[in-house]
Amino acid sequence: MAQIPPPALPTPAPDLPAIEVRDLVTYYGKRKILDGVTLSVRTGEVLVIMGGSGSGKTTLLKHLLGLLRPAAGQVRMLGHDINAISARQLNALRQRIGVAFQSGALFSSLSVGENIMLPLREHTDLAESTMRIMARMKLEVVDLAGAEDLMPAELSGGMIKRAAFARAIVMDPRILFCDEPSAGLDPVTSASIDDLIAHLRDATGMTVIVVTHELESAFKIADRICVLDHGRILEIDTVEAIRRSANPRIQDLLGRRTERPATDPDDYLRRLTEGGR
């Protein structure tokens, strides 16, 4: 049965930001996770989102992907308010983005080539031979030429990450999201993934958003860095400006210094004896 294409979305003006976030607020239950986040992602840049554990990085990424609805605020992607368009229009918009998941998220029962062709099977009516050629082309881009018949279990950690990138870019997205691309990799392999991200941006002009806690990777690949802390943006600026930031929380993050709040002895004793009541 022929696929029914989703309704066409108008093409945004070329000078518009790739993504705009305005006054974004999110709660998990009664706990506020994002508190008035506002940022603009420029077309063609690599923006790195970083912060400590619990800072809101993953929650912000989920909003950018349209997986969560905010309590307040707006997210615009490629000129479209992703919380105001229909589900079918959001599906069409998502076909313009790619996601490289932290674990790779390859299907273990499919070969590398079949994993990469999966988005093409779901969203296009291309001939099988055409899809195979496109998969091989993307494997060439990520330096995995000839790996299409391998199974995920036969790949190293770095190869899994590269295969995940090939799948993420197989439909030539306008925006690429990368969740902790260097996590769990040795320094040499991590550096090769950083080089791959920079190459994809330079070769295709796509906008790349990277969520990471790896400082060395962030400094190497970022055009700008967005630092989150307790659901708020502390600063968005170039790598050098972030390095020189006078904000003590940013310097704590860069210096890997823990935040230890002052403890009142009387309050500490009360919490021990009364169970925090």
Rank of each mutant, 00 (worst) to 15 (best):
V239C: 05
A100K: 12
C178I: 06
L196P: 10
E214T: 07
L150W: 10
T124G: 10
A241Q: 15
A241H: 14
D194N: 12
Q74Y: 07
L60G: 01
S53Q: 08
E216F: 06
T43C: 01
E240V: 02
G29A: 06
I221Y: 09
Q74A: 05
K161C: 03
S108C: 04
G104Y: 09
A241V: 09
V37Y: 04
I175P: 11
Q89F: 08
R69Y: 06
R69T: 12
S217N: 07
L67P: 03
N91Q: 13
I250P: 02
M159Q: 15
T58G: 00
L228F: 08
M1K: 15
D266A: 10
A147I: 02
L139F: 05
R244H: 15
R162V: 00
L39V: 13
T58Q: 00
P14M: 06
S40Y: 09
D195A: 14
C226K: 10
L90R: 13
D186M: 02
M137K: 14
L118N: 14
I116A: 12
V112F: 14
R224F: 06
L39Q: 10
A84K: 11
P187M: 12
V25Q: 09
K30T: 14
D267P: 00
L47A: 02
V99W: 00
F101E: 02
N115K: 09
D179T: 09
M50S: 01
R69Q: 14
R94W: 12
H230N: 12
S109G: 01
L39C: 10
A127P: 15
F219I: 08
D15T: 14
Q74S: 08
K220M: 04
L64C: 00
Y268E: 12
S190G: 14
C178P: 13
G276Y: 15
L110A: 09
Q102D: 08
K30L: 12
I175D: 11
G157K: 01
M50Q: 04
T38V: 03
P187S: 13
Q95S: 12
Y27V: 13
R201G: 01
R243N: 03
M134T: 14
S192D: 15
Q74G: 01
I193M: 04
I242R: 08
D266H: 04
A145Q: 13
S190N: 06
S190L: 06
R88G: 02
D179H: 00
V41C: 05
L253V: 02
G113F: 14
E274T: 15
I193Q: 06
D81Q: 03
R94I: 00
N115H: 03
P152V: 11
V75K: 07
I49S: 06
T238F: 07
H80C: 04
H230G: 04
D202M: 03
A105V: 10
D15W: 07
H213P: 06
G73C: 01
Y27G: 11
P248I: 02
L155Q: 07
D264Y: 07
I175N: 13
R174L: 07
